[in-house]
Simulated assay, not measured.
Amino acid sequence: MSAPSSTTPIQDPLVAPKVAPAKKKPYPFWLGGVAATIAASITHPLDLTKVRLQASGDKRMIESIKKTVRTAGVRGLFDGISGTWMRQMSYSMCRFWAYDESKKILGAGKDAPAWKLAAAGSMAGGIAGFIGNPGEIVMVRLQGDFAKPPEKRFNYKHCFDALFRMVREEGFSSLGRGVTPNVFRAILMNASQLASYDFFKAELLKTQYFEDNIACHFTASFAAGTVATTVCSPADVLKSRIMNASGPGSNSTLGVIRASMKNEGPMFMFKGWLPAWTRLQPTTILIFLTLEQLKNGVDWTRSKGYDFL
Rank of each mutant, 00 (worst) to 15 (best):
Q281G: 03
E63C: 04
N251F: 07
S252M: 06
A35E: 02
F222T: 03
H44W: 14
I81H: 13
A120P: 13
F268A: 01
A35K: 04
I105V: 15
G249T: 05
L238R: 00
Q208C: 00
L163G: 14
S246A: 14
W85H: 01
R168E: 05
K295S: 04
K239M: 12
R168P: 13
P234H: 08
S82D: 06
M166R: 03
R153A: 01
G83H: 06
D161I: 06
A128R: 02
D12N: 15
S250K: 13
K104S: 12
F268C: 08
Q193M: 15
E136R: 04
F29V: 08
G176E: 02
D198C: 08
P282F: 03
D236A: 13
A108F: 09
A186L: 08
F160H: 06
I137T: 05
L274Y: 04
V183N: 10
D145L: 05
S240I: 11
T37E: 05
A72W: 12
V74H: 06
S92M: 13
V256T: 08
R141P: 11
G272T: 04
K23P: 05
C216G: 13
W85F: 10
P248S: 00
G132Y: 01
K304R: 15
L291Y: 04
K152S: 13
S240D: 13
S82Q: 10
T68N: 03
P248F: 06
F184H: 01
V179L: 03
K25H: 08
A98N: 12
T219G: 01
V179K: 04
A128K: 05
A16S: 10
D47A: 15
S250P: 02
G83A: 09
R279C: 15
M166V: 01
R60V: 10
E151Y: 10
V34P: 10
C94I: 15
D58W: 01
R165N: 10
N213L: 02
I187F: 13
R141Q: 03
A223V: 11
K148V: 07
I127A: 09
D47I: 15
M243R: 08
F29K: 02
R52S: 01
Q281C: 07
Q193K: 11
A276N: 10
V15L: 13
I127L: 07
L194R: 06
N251A: 14
R168G: 00
A119S: 14
G80W: 03
G83R: 09
W277G: 14
A276G: 03
S250C: 03
L163K: 09
K25A: 09
A162K: 00
T84S: 09
G265L: 07
T278R: 03
A228H: 07
T180M: 12
T229Y: 01
A120Y: 01
L294G: 08
V34C: 14
E264Y: 15
R165D: 12
R95G: 05
S174R: 09
F210T: 06
Y209V: 06
L53D: 02
A215H: 12
V74Y: 06
T49Q: 11
L291I: 08
F210Q: 04
I285R: 05
S196G: 10
F222W: 12
A195K: 08
M269V: 12
F29S: 11
K271N: 03
L106Y: 07
V19T: 14
G225N: 07
E101G: 11
